[in-house]
Structure formats: C-alpha cells, structure tokens
Nucleic acid binder design. Structure first.
Length: 740
DNA sequence: GCCCTCTTGTTCGAT
DNA sequence: ACAAGAGGGC
C-alpha cells in the first residue's frame, strides 16, 4: 500500500514525520484531511501502532466518522479501537469511567444551554438579585470565561469584592456550581474541565491515558480554548507525539473562548516541534482563491502566508445586488435552476449566511420551486418542546437527582401538580438538603400537602420508579417507547387531534426512530450513551443526510466543508460584518476571517449577494454593501448591473414545476407545524416481505420482516449496502422499486 | 390549579 | 419577529 501516492512534498513530509510534536499549518483546501488520514494509516500499517493507541480530535462527529471511513479504506485491518471524536465526546467517554473519583456519580446528566439558563434563573432568584440587572445569558457567559481560565468562584469574588455587580456574579457562579453538583450534572464546559481536574487529581488515571494514547491528533487547532489546550497538554506529556492541524486565518470561535495563541505559540509550548506549511490549494479556482487572499490581507493581526493553486483561473466571482431578502432568494433560486440545466445537482450548492434567521426567505423560495434543500441548525429538532420533554424524562430516569429535568416534566402532561405544590416540595427538599426525587419517595414527610397533591405526587413517583426498573431489562428503543406511551404524552396529543399535535406525534415517532438507529449502530449502547450522543451532536451532525439537496447553513457551520457552487448572501454592513463587531478591531478581524472561511468553501463558482433593504428583528432598514466586498479586487469580480429591480422577477412562477416535479420535497424541522411530516408515499397494503424498496439514505434493500406496532408497522429491511435496518413504516423515507 | 391573553424583552455565532 | 413572563378570569 502506497500512502504517499498523489501527495505533494510537504504533505509527504507530514505523513512520514516520526516522533515529536508536529504543527501542520494547513491553508484552506490544502488537503489536510488527506494528510491526517494517510498519516494515521501509515502509523498503523508501517509503524505497527495499534489503533487503540491513537486519539484523534475533530470538530464534529461527522468529520470523525468520515475520517474513520477514509482510514478504513486505506487499511485492511479493523480500526474501531481508534478514539476519534470531538473534545466533548472524548471527555464524556473518559468521565463515564472515572468521574466518581472527583465526587460526581457516573450517571451524571449533561446540561445544555436551556438547562443552564433554567438553573441560573433559580440561582438569581435564590440570591434575591434583580433579574433586570443579572441576565442569565450574560452571567453564564462570564462564568464560562472564568471556568475556561480555571478561576474558581472564591478567587473571583475576592478579586472583585469592591465591585457590587462582579461580586454578585461571583456569588452566582459559586451557587451555580453547587447546584450542578447537587443535580449530578455537568455543563458543556465542565465536560472538559472535569476531565482535566480528574487527570490532575489522579496521576494514575492520567498515566493510563498518557500510555494509551501514543499518538494524538487535533484538527482545527486554531479553535481550541485554554482548557482544551490543557487537556491535550496533559495527555501528550509523556509521548510528546502530538500533531495539531489548523489555520490561524480560519479562527472563528473567539467568542467561545477559542484562543488563537494556542496555535501561534505551539512551537514555543512544545519543545522540538516541527512545523509544516501546506500552502497549495486543491479546492478552488485561482479567482476564488485570490479574492479570499485579498480580503484576509486586510487583517493586521496575522502571519502572512501565500496560498496558491494549480487549478484553472475559473469564472469571475459574481456580486449581485437585490432589493430585499425575497428578491435575493429568488436570484439564488434562479441561478440554481440555471446551473442545474447545465448538469449540476442540488447537492453541489450551498447557501452561506451570517445568521440563522436568514434561512427563511431561501426556504420559502426553494419550497415554492420544489428545489430540495436541507437546513443545518436553526430551530432544531432536538429543541422542540416534545423532544426536550421526553429527553427530560430519560435524563431523570438515568440520574434521579437531576431536579432541573424533574421540574420540567413533573406536570407534563398535566397531572395536577401545580406551582403551589411544587413550592412546598422544593422548600422541604432544600431544607433537608435532598433532591426532589428523594423527598418524593416518601411524600408523607413533606409538610403542608393536601391529600390530593400527595396522591398525584405518589402516582408520579411510582411511575418513575417503574421506569427505572424497566430500564434494566429493556433495549433503548423498547424502553423509550415504553416511556413515551407510559407517561401519557401520546394519549394527550392524540386526544387533542389538532394538526399541531399530529406534528408533535410525528416528531416523537421520529425520535423513536433515532433511538432505533442508535441501537442498530451501537448494539451495546446504554441509555447514558444515547443521551450523551444526542446532546453532543453538532448541527452538522444532526442534519439529516438527505441525498441531493441544496445545503443551507451559517458560515460557522460550514467550517471544514466544501461545495462546487457557493452563495454568500446578506453581505451587508451590520449583518456581515455583524453590527456588534463594528466597534472592535479584533471582532472585526474575526468577521473578516469568517468571510475568508466562507469564500474558501467554494470550488468552482462563488456568488456574493447583498440587499438594499433588510428586515431584522421586525425593523426594516436601508443597508450598505459589506466592506468585505470593497476589499475584493475589482478585476476578479463581476459587479453586474447594479440596479434596484430584478430581471428575474417572474410572473406567476408556475412554469418551473413540471420538470422538477419528481424532485423530493425535503422534510424540514425548522417550520412551524403547518406542514406535518411528509408521510411515506408507500401504500400500506402493497408492502410485504420480499418487496424491494429504495431508501433516501441507504439505497436499495429488501423487506425481510413486517410487524404490527399499533396502527403502524415496523419493518426490517436488508439493504444491499447498509445492512439490516429497523424502521417504522409510517415515517421511513422509502419508496417501492418498480420494474422488478 | 389551569388557561388564555397581553406585555415585555430580546436582538450573532454553538459544543 | 418571536418567545417567555405576568396577570386575570374561570
């Protein structure tokens, strides 16, 4: 096997690098994933390194899976033992084994942003602070920064004893941490912090992982924060075989604590480090690359580098000026249709915007024209109320001291446990220092409750206990179905019978099928694994892999991705760069890097568009074109006719339908429940064992089993490529293959 | 205790 | 534009 075939000299050098720290400064599109996969394959095959001795940290789980697949393609043996994933998922894996050593239980919950806000609300209330002065979000932002720099609450309080506001933030920080501990919960920051704490408090555990991970890889190193740096610093302390890959020009997570000095100081931090620069771009045309280079050159705080390419010059970058967001969306839709006539596929296009709210006009335009699309992020499936409720039940069952989850669902669906009752229960619980669940195990001890309230509470706690027992003996999917039906959620929604409740029911079914998928992919997976899995997925991970559709996403989410044709939309002052960045030079430079990331996603064609008027937060304003457009060289861009009206205005817009009718309308979770999930087009009666079907994701397969499940059917399909899958007939995206 | 309506505040990016 | 919260009626 030749691991060097098709690589340039720099890339080869990186693949063949021996021992010791290695920094790969990889410009956009310079083939860093190739280098990483080939290097790992090379280590395993030529240097006889066991896959279990390799740790690779990626930015999304999707990137990890893709990398694993690519390595597997290069090798014969099994590489499942490589630890590959995001910082967060790797840390959860470590903590599930040993977090009890630092005073948490291994069944800990993971709190997402909403949970954090709920918890912070409680803290503010408990300290009798004004909620006008102490905003949960901004207090949490401060706390996150403090946690990242490992500043404990009392240090912060002492440093700020004379500043009333900051001192109180410190008090809130202390209480917040105490409550997390009481709830046996970790927030996202904690997943890394507690791992570092665990390593520091337990040298033997650290040593175990230091010995295990002989080679460590970190992708997108420019976006690591201080605590993540500590984590890899500790882990690589013994073998020093740490290989990081990144591009300072693509550092776009400064607001999340990403510390660009991590990559800039790598050579200082890690003794005898080798640095390799990958500066040949294989992705974009010369024009696109030049535009990107010109824009990024305007950043003052930057190490100069010259990214070049052997690719064609390509077409000019087209700048389009529309009247408003609707016209902008029509322009994009028209261009997509034009290019599709030339032979491009929907999956060749991406729409990149600065803020999620901008997706709407594009969704509407695409829906109207039957252009299939998928939306990354935005109002997400997992953020829907019914899904969060069910997850809260599962979290509570897994970790009964999780009061936040308990309070979320104790009266959902209604079971007559209102605020007055809960105040008494909570009051008593905090008085004796117990979790709410523990107090409820014996409701008689709680003072001041009516018999009716006591009975409602008893019914609730009996139900939860019953679930806890069931969990021990059931598979995840079966268990989740048991919970979903058992708590009465389904019945309440069915009784309601509205379109909205139907959508909610469909979402719950979809959630069950997520559980089925998880169980198929992880036969050994526990409830903890399932919950951690869904809460640590990135937006890119969560987006359904719908074949052949246009991708709509923020520039942040687009990091690491590439598309033949890219539309950068909403290129206006105040939107991109965003208004908040206009006063700060460093924030403006981050916006510029973001712009650089966006431009360099494009392979063949790049469209840039701005609108004359834009409505943001319900207010319509005139806008100016983004300064980043001015920074592009005039000879490389086609400014077209700068005008107000659009030549693409179409009357009636009905004609486009016929030729595109066969294109699948893509399900989209971001919409209000107006459109219920598209049911499978399959006629129930025509499906039997032996029927050949085509699935959107898994391709052709044969039905091997059919089982009744309520008025639905569970089907098992043997796919030619993807193997056996269990699906629910009503929601499976399949169609019967004809002509057999 | 529950539900509906009106008011008020929010206001970028996301594991 | 939109969601969460407060307040009032049942």
């Amino acid at each position: 096997m030749d691991y060097l075939k098709g690589l340039n000299d720099r890339q080869k050098e990186a693949v063949l690098h021996g021992e010791g720290p290695l920094l790969i400064l990889a410009g956009a599109g310079s083939g860093k994933t190739r280098v990483l996969t080939h290097r790992i394959a090379y280590l395993i095959e030529e240097n006889r390194i066991f896959p279990g001795n390799i740790l690779a940290i990626t930015f999304t789980n999707k990137a990890a899976n893709e990398m694993k697949e690519r390595i597997a393609d290069l090798l014969d043996g099994n590489i499942d033992d490589i630890w590959m994933g995001t910082f967060h998922s790797i840390c959860v894996r470590i903590l599930r084994r040993d977090i009890d050593k630092i005073g948490f239980q291994r069944s800990f919950s993971i709190y997402d942003r909403d949970d954090q806000i709920t918890l912070m609300k409680e803290c503010i209330k408990e300290l009798n602070l004004s909620k006008d002065m102490y905003k949960e979000r901004s207090v949490l932002a401060t706390i996150s920064t403090l946690k990242d720099s490992m500043t404990p609450p009392d240090t912060y309080i002492n440093e700020n004893y004379s500043d009333f506001y900051s001192k109180n933030v410190g008090e809130l920080y202390a209480l917040y941490e105490k409550k997390l501990k009481q709830n046996n919960a970790l927030d996202f920051d904690d997943l890394i912090i507690k791992t570092v704490e665990l390593f520091k408090a337990n040298p033997t555990i650290l040593e175990y992982y230091q010995k295990k991970f002989k080679y460590i890889f970190v992708d997108e190193y420019q976006d690591t924060n201080k605590i993540q740096y500590q984590f890899i610093r500790l882990l690589s302390g013994q073998n020093k075989n740490i290989c990081v890959v990144g591009d300072p020009d693509q550092s776009i997570y400064g607001w999340r604590g990403a510390d660009i000095t991590n990559i800039i100081d790598f050579e200082k931090d890690f003794e005898n480090a080798t640095t390799i620069r990958l500066e040949q771009n294989y992705r974009s045309t010369q024009n696109i690359l030049n535009v990107a280079n010109y824009v990024i050159k305007n950043n003052y705080d930057r190490i100069d580098k010259k990214l070049w390419t052997d690719n064609n010059e390509g077409s000019q970058v087209v700048v389009e000026n529309s009247l408003d967001s609707d016209e902008e969306a029509r322009f994009v839709a028209n261009k997509i249709e034009e290019h599709m006539k030339e032979g491009y596929n929907p999956s060749d296009f991406a729409i990149l915007y600065r803020t999620n709210a901008q997706s709407r006009s594009f969704e509407e335009a695409f829906m109207r024209r039957n252009i299939p699309y998928k939306l990354v992020g935005g109002l997400r499936f997992y953020d829907r109320k019914e899904i969060k409720d069910i997850i809260a039940y599962l979290k509570l069952i897994q970790n009964p001291v999780d009061d936040i989850s308990l309070k979320r669902i104790i009266n959902v669906p209604r079971r007559g446990i209102g605020n007055a009752t809960m105040e008494k229960v909570e009051g008593y619980a905090s008085e004796i220092g117990e979790s709410i669940y523990n107090v409820l195990l014996d409701v008689e001890q709680i003072p001041g409750l009516s018999t009716r309230a006591k009975n409602s509470l008893k019914t609730f706690i009996d139900m939860i206990n019953k679930f806890m027992a069931m969990r021990e003996v059931m598979g995840i999917q079966e268990f989740i179905e048991e919970v979903v039906y058992g708590v009465g959620y389904i019945k309440e929604l069915e009784d309601e019978g509205s379109i909205e409740s139907q959508t909610r029911l469909d979402n719950i079914k979809e959630f069950i099928s997520v559980a089925i998928d998880f169980q198929v992919a992880n036969p050994e997976g526990t409830l903890e694994d399932f919950l951690a899995n869904i809460s640590l997925l990135s937006d890119v991970d969560k987006t359904e892999d719908i074949d052949n559709s246009v991708t709509l996403l923020t520039v942040h989410s687009a990091k690491g991705l590439e598309f033949p044709i890219v539309f950068m939309v909403g290129m206006e002052e105040g939107l991109f760069p965003i208004s908040r960045a206009l006063e700060s030079e460093s924030e403006l430079e981050e916006e510029r890097r973001l712009c650089y990331v966006a431009i360099t996603r494009a392979e063949k064609l790049l469209y840039i568009s701005f609108a004359k008027i834009r409505t943001i937060y319900g207010k319509t304003n005139y806008t100016l074109p983004s300064r980043f457009i001015d920074e592009m060289p005039k000879n490389l861009i086609d400014m077209g006719k700068q005008r107000g009206g659009s030549p693409y205005q179409i009357s009636g817009n009905t004609r486009a339908q016929s030729s595109r009718e066969q294109l699948i309308r893509v399900q989209d979770f971001s919409k209000k429940p107006s459109t219920s999930r598209a049911k499978t087009s399959i006629d129930n009666t025509k499906v039997k064992e032996g029927t050949k079907v085509k699935h959107k994701k898994w391709g052709i397969g044969t039905i091997v089993q059919l089982k009744d499940r309520g008025d639905d059917k569970e089907i098992v399909i043997a796919f030619d490529k993807a193997g056996l899958k269990r699906l629910l007939l009503s929601i499976a995206p399949i169609e019967i293959v004809k002509g057999e």
